[in-house]
Structure formats: structure tokens, C-alpha cells
Design a protein around this nucleic acid. Structure first.
Lengths: 335, 335
DNA sequence: CTGAAAGCGCTTACAG
DNA sequence: CTGAAAGCGCTTACAG
């Protein structure tokens, strides 16, 4: 088998010759259309493909079709746990549909994101997955490119673009209600300054519904360091809340580090619930109670949206599910 | 600007027409060769490119050249912290050289890794980056494909393939020597069962050199869960070592979770040093002392190896650097 | 149901 | 220094 591809690689012409048909027929068989092929001819072609170890040249196909079987994935930083898991789920979902993923981190300061988008498009991607916050200009660019695209894992609906996300508000509300159920009344929120982060609203709504006063509100970057600093601010401020809703597992883990360093005990001194449901939330001590995002289902929906684009922009919302562990004060369960 | 690409996209022919030259000249200018172009003509072409907002079609180029400006990255699971960081570094390194990264996770049980490799090759990748353990068959396949390839971040040299890695043995030795310096004599090793993991050898060599008895040896998977289980085995075995060298940050973090759950204090009851130097090692409590792998330099070297392949297979080894933090018993420093 | 042929947008030897 | 043209390996109207 390896012998055939040793020299020049096998092309459609070789297959056609071997099967005694034209290259068009080979295409019809391989693409299952657009023309029908007689069953016996089809068998001959398939045999030839097998014997010669033929693989279509994706570049030739992309040139001819005007689109490659690849998706571009724009992500701010694939290292943060949530986005790492999202990338994995998207790779899985794409591969399930025969597409490959071209991954691009947008946190490279040397290159403008719009340049990265244009580069992706010049590679003839069949769709763009945006797991990142876009500026208005970048968003306009994407729209003008008229390429199937979808925003995933961001704060909510992005006007003018397809989107897949979770109901942050409801997820946060359930999380805060759970904390209230534990008997905590002084509940803080630690999240980003983005005014469209619905988790903040869910937090305040839950408190209002329970006729509790609004707790402290801390804005900090979505990173371990952001969480660490918020934790330190809480400790040093002297006014420690009884519980905290963290907008991401990563923030919560950073807070845990700060609390550990300062001897603040979780959940005894302060309880924590976070958001995302990444694996890393399950491997800290205490384990984090967290609102899980159904990543694989979201990824599947995003890929589906690229493959079968609907007319206008749509937004698909999933709901987060609270996973109870020790950080909120719940008793240890089987992990 | 957006107007031009609204209908049919701009091609080389449009640029040539606008600049009043042949398409060949446009190519010569854009590719800086293989022929020289008069400075003034060059300016005209560049102007046309600018005005028309022209972007070369990468698929056409790939078809013509027989190779796309893309690398395939085969990784077992991009979610684990070390490999997530490696992916990021490789994306950076590839983009610096004008290449994109096609990422493929090999942990999909439905698809054979060899199929994934063939798929990558059919997409005309210009090189294959392997951040994964290959079976003999898969390795043979890669060699027979005669495509530039490099193995990165694995246990050591892979016969027959280019490689980039770190000196695990020396790194582990330094780590264990540090633990010995703290006065610990009963030092365990927790790592994989792979008999070619040199970290295990470094551990035993350091102990032997200090005339200390070999500590406990625990084999466990490279995952949070693997670390957790090893930690539990240690706690339940009743024979707790005074210190542990963990083969990865991820294993160490899993152990920390187990120790936290069972009330074992780190570093007071047991000290820990781990390997990798991922960001996550800096956001646990206590922070992990860890042997850092110079990921960005390794990634750059790997990409370089693909772009300018040397004759026979080569192996480039970097050295890990011990980063001192609290888990080994060192005093807190500025993070 | 099948084939001959044009076309996708590049690159590059070849001839001026 | 520049141009006309063949070729890369596919897809798919078009004609039988």
C-alpha cells in the first residue's frame, strides 16, 4: 500500500484509468452525486480507490468548490480551561461532520484580529467559529465577508451574527438561590466589568427575589490572576462576604488560591459557587460547586449552524446545570 | 473596500489587469521570486493589491505548490493544561512563520489515529506536529508519508523522527536534589508506567547519588484523576512519604485534591515538586514548585524543524528549570 | 448512465 | 525584465 504513494501520489485520473471509467464518474461515486452511477460501476470505482489507496486532494477540491472542508476557530486564548474544553468539543463536533479545525488565538499582540480573520478566509474556510469578543469593526468585517459564522460561549446574543450560548442569567440565579438555601445572606459577585454579562443580573435578581440586600460587586478579569486579585481584595477589604458567586471556574480557582494563602477557609468562612463546569473545578480542594455549560451540545449546535445556515441571524440558548460539590457547603458526594 | 469582494472575489487576474502586467509578474512580486521585478512595476502591483483588497487564494496556491501553508497538530487531548499551553505556543510559532495550525485531537475513540493522519495529509499540510504517543504502526505510517514531521513534548527521542523535548532525567534530578536539600529523605515518585519516562530515572539517580533509599514508586495515568487516585493510594497505604516528585503538574494538582480531602497538609506533612511549569501550577494552594519546560522555545524549534528539515532525524533537547514555590516547603515569594 | 472538456486561481519553466 | 501558457487535481454543466 505504501508503495503506490512513494513516488507521485495517486490522483483521480489513476483511479479512473484503473476502474476503466472517466474521472467524472469517480467524482460522482465519491461525492455521491450530482449524477447517479450504476451499482456495478460504482463497485469498480470503490475497488480501484481501495486498491490504489486513493485520497482526494483537499486543496484541489477546495479550489474547485470555492470552499474547503475546514472551519476557522477564533479564540482569545485556548489555554484557559473553559476555552480549552470548548476547542476540544468543537474539534469533536467538526470532525463528526468531516471538517477540520483551523485554530487561531487572537491574543497575539503583534497581529490585528481582523488580519487573522482575513487570513482564515483566504484559506477558503467553510465557516468561522468565533469564541471571542469582537470589536464593532471586526464584527462588521465578519458580516461583510458573507461567510457562515457563529459566535459561541460569549455573553449573549451578538447582533447580526448567529450565536450559541447559555442562559447566564438563569444559571446565575439558580446558583445564588442555592447559596441562599444554605442560609447565606451576604452574597458577593465577582465577574467581569462587561455590562452585558447577564450573570451579574441573575445574581442581583435572585437576591432581590429573596428580599436580600445586594452584596459586594467586584469586577476583575477572566483569569486565574483576576480571581486571585479579587480574592485578595475581599480579604484585605476586611468586609468578607459569607458567600461568593464567581463568574467562571477560573476566577473561583484564583480566589481559592488567595484564600488558601490567607488562611480563609472555604466553605466555612466563605462559600463559593462558580460558573462553567470545567474539569479543573473538580480537582481543587474544596471542589467547586459550579453551573455547568453543556459544551458538547453547544459545539454540535454551532457546527450545525455553519453547515446549514438559516436565513437571518439566530441565537440558540442552552441552560446551565448546577453541579453540587463541597465549595458551597454541600456535603461531600461521590466525585 | 468591502464592495469589491461583495460579488466575486478579487483574483490575481484582476490585479494584473489593474496594474497592467501579466499574472506571472504579480506572482513574482507577491512571492518575492523566483524572478526579479523592476522596482516601479513592483510598486504598481503592490498598489493594485492594496486598492483592490486582493488576497491570494490559499487553496489554489496549495494545489499548485503541492503543499499548503498549514501544519497539522496531532495532540491526544488539548484540554490538559500542558498540552493546552503547548498548542498555544505552537499556534504562536506557526503564525510567526505565516502558517496556520490544523488541530486534531486523537482521543476520539470512533476514529483511528492513522485515519486522522491520512486526512491531515490529504489536506496538503506542509508538516505534521505530533504531540502524542504513536503506536509503531502509526509511526511507520508517518515515516512512509514522507512529510516533514516532528514529535514534541514526549518522553524522549522517537527513533526515525525529528523530535523536540526536554531533558526529563536532569530536570527530575534537580527537583529531587532540591527536596533532599530541604532535608527530606523519604521521597516518592508518581508518574506513568512508561518505562522510557526518564523522570523516573532522574529521581532514582538523585536518591542514589545522595545515598538515600529508593522511595515509593507509584504508576498512574497522566491526568487529574490519575493524580487524585495516586494521592489516595498514598494516604490509604498508611506509609506516607515525606516528599513526592510528581511527573506532571496535573498529577500534582490531583494529588493536592486528594490530600486536601483527607486533611493531609502540604508541605508540612508531605512536600510536592512537580514537572511542566504550567500556569495552573501557580494557582493552587500551596503553589507548586515545578520544573518548567520552555514551551515557547520548544515550539519555535519544532516549527523551525518543519520549515527547514535537516537530513537525518534529529533530536533537540532543552532543559527544564526549577521554579521554587511553596509546595516544597520554600518560603512564599512574590508570585 | 457515462464522457469530454472547461474552469477554479495559483506557480513556474520556457521563450522572448 | 516581462508574457503566454501549461499544469496542479478536483467539480460539474453540457452533450451524448
Amino acid at each position: 500500500m505504501a508503495d503506490e504513494r512513494r513516488s507521485r501520489s495517486v490522483t483521480r485520473a489513476d483511479v479512473a484509468r484503473y476502474a476503466g471509467v472517466s474521472t467524472a464518474v469517480v467524482s460522482y461515486v465519491l461525492n455521491d452525486g450530482p449524477k447517479r452511477v450504476a451499482p456495478l460501476t460504482k463497485e469498480r470505482v470503490l475497488d480501484a480507490v481501495r486498491v490504489l489507496g486513493y485520497r482526494p486532494n483537499a486543496a484541489a477540491r477546495a479550489l474547485s468548490m470555492g470552499s474547503a472542508d475546514m472551519f476557522g476557530l477564533l479564540v482569545h486564548d485556548n489555554r484557559s480551561p473553559f476555552f480549552a474544553e470548548l476547542c476540544h468539543a468543537l474539534d469533536q463536533a467538526s470532525a463528526d461532520r468531516g471538517r477540520s479545525l483551523l485554530i487561531v488565538n487572537s491574543d497575539r499582540t503583534q497581529v490585528a484580529t481582523s488580519e487573522q480573520i482575513r487570513d482564515l478566509v483566504s484559506r477558503q474556510i467553510g465557516g468561522l467559529i468565533i469564541a471571542d469578543v469582537l470589536t464593532a469593526g471586526e464584527q462588521g468585517l465578519v458580516e461583510s465577508l458573507r461567510i457562515p459564522s457563529v459566535v459561541i460561549g460569549q455573553f449573549g446574543e451578538t447582533e447580526g451574527l448567529h450565536g450559541v450560548g447559555v442562559d447566564f442569567c438563569a444559571g446565575a440565579r439558580v446558583a445564588v438561590e442555592h447559596l441562599i438555601g444554605h442560609g447565606y445572606h451576604d452574597i458577593a459577585f465577582v465577574g467581569s466589568a462587561a455590562r452585558y454579562d447577564e450573570r451579574e443580573r441573575g445574581w442581583s435578581e435572585a437576591l432581590a427575589a429573596a428580599r436580600l440586600p445586594l452584596g459586594q460587586l467586584l469586577h476583575t478579569p477572566f483569569s486565574y490572576q483576576g480571581g486571585y486579585e479579587a480574592g485578595m481584595r475581599l480579604v484585605q477589604g476586611g468586609r468578607m462576604p459569607r458567600a461568593v458567586l464567581a463568574a467562571s471556574d477560573q476566577i473561583a480557582i484564583g480566589m481559592l488560591t488567595a484564600f488558601g494563602e490567607r488562611g480563609v477557609r472555604v466553605p466555612d468562612d466563605v462559600a463559593i459557587v462558580s460558573f462553567d463546569g470545567t474539569v479543573s473545578a473538580d480537582y481543587v480542594w474544596p471542589r467547586l460547586t459550579t453551573a455547568m455549560q453543556p459544551l458538547q451540545r453547544m459545539a454540535d449546535a454551532a457546527v450545525q449552524a455553519l453547515i446549514e445556515p438559516t436565513e437571518g441571524p439566530s441565537y440558540q440558548e442552552f441552560s446551565a446545570q448546577l453541579r453540587l460539590r463541597e465549595s458551597c457547603g454541600c456535603p461531600p458526594a461521590g466525585s
